[in-house]
């Protein structure tokens, strides 16, 4: 059973096809990175997987179950950070993690223990009693990661999780992702930090114009160069498509 599967996904906003037949999968224990330019369709794909948006056609499955049919037992095995991390500004860091863990199905005691553990793990102790509204962007991102992962999900979906993190935060995030995969969780992660992706991903898929246009080998040198070559090659072979997308964006 795949941890996550998106097959032939199409989603159009007016004349713009944000997803244009995109297919990808994540196996248990696999870190699958998707990379692409802004507007490539990475976030839309992730949003379709958690129900933020609906697909016009195609299929999305979480842990073997179609998204629309996923019940509490499936959803309690999912954790994600898409767009804005979990975190109510008026609640403390600790309370946010406890509530997030409970919403993901942990009992009160287990959620409290998980909060303490993740506060230590993500080095949030100095801010544990502080309200989330006072956190820096990077610490909010750490908090969001703790809220998504404190229930030890079998599937993690992370959209640009390194955006605001400092180098220490990036290392912590990497440890969390690798540890999740080591215990068998599937991880789908999008990132603009190609070096970081190259270090930890088992599979790197290039998404462009709402579809998969190729794959890159993790650990290769000069990943950025190879990425742009792939994107330019696709654009050169699909000039009409590129023009239509530019008009739709305008």
């Amino acid at each position: 059973m795949t941890a996550l599967e998106l097959r032939g996904a199409v989603r159009a906003y007016g004349g713009l096809r944000a997803l244009d037949g995109l297919s990808l999968a994540v196996e248990p224990g696999e870190i699958h990175a998707i990379i692409g330019l802004n507007g490539a369709g990475k976030t839309t794909a992730m949003k379709a997987l958690v129900g933020h948006t609906r697909l016009d056609s195609g299929e999305a499955r979480l842990l073997g179950t179609p998204v629309a049919a996923a019940g509490p037992s499936t959803l309690s095995r999912l954790g994600f950070v898409i767009d804005q991390p979990f975190g109510y500004p008026e609640l403390t860091v600790r309370d946010n993690i406890v509530h997030a863990a409970r919403l993901h199905g942990l009992a009160r005691d287990a959620a409290t223990r998980a909060a303490s553990s993740w506060i230590a793990r993500l080095e949030l102790e100095p801010w544990a009693g502080r309200r989330a509204r006072g956190l820096s962007l990077g610490n909010r991102q750490r908090l969001g990661l703790a809220c998504a992962a404190a229930h030890e999900p079998d599937l993690l979906i992370l959209d640009e999780p390194t955006n605001a993190l400092d180098p220490a935060g990036v290392l912590l995030l990497r440890d969390v992702i690798v540890a999740a995969a080591d215990r068998g969780a599937g991880v789908l992660v999008s990132s603009h930090h190609l070096d970081e992706v190259s270090r930890i991903a088992h599979r790197i898929t290039v998404v462009h114009a709402g579809r998969v246009v190729g794959a890159l080998e993790p650990g290769q040198a000069d990943l950025e160069h190879r990425f742009f070559e792939m994107v330019r090659a696709w654009d050169a072979g699909h000039r009409d498509d590129v023009l239509a997308r530019q008009e739709a964006h305008a």
């Binding site: 898409i82 767009d83 804005q84």
Partner: peptide
């Protein structure tokens, strides 16, 4: 307004 709604999707608590 606080962009917290996104985290309320795909939870065991509907």
């Amino acid at each position: 307004a606080d962009r917290t709604v996104g985290s309320l999707f795909a939870l065991p608590v509907g």
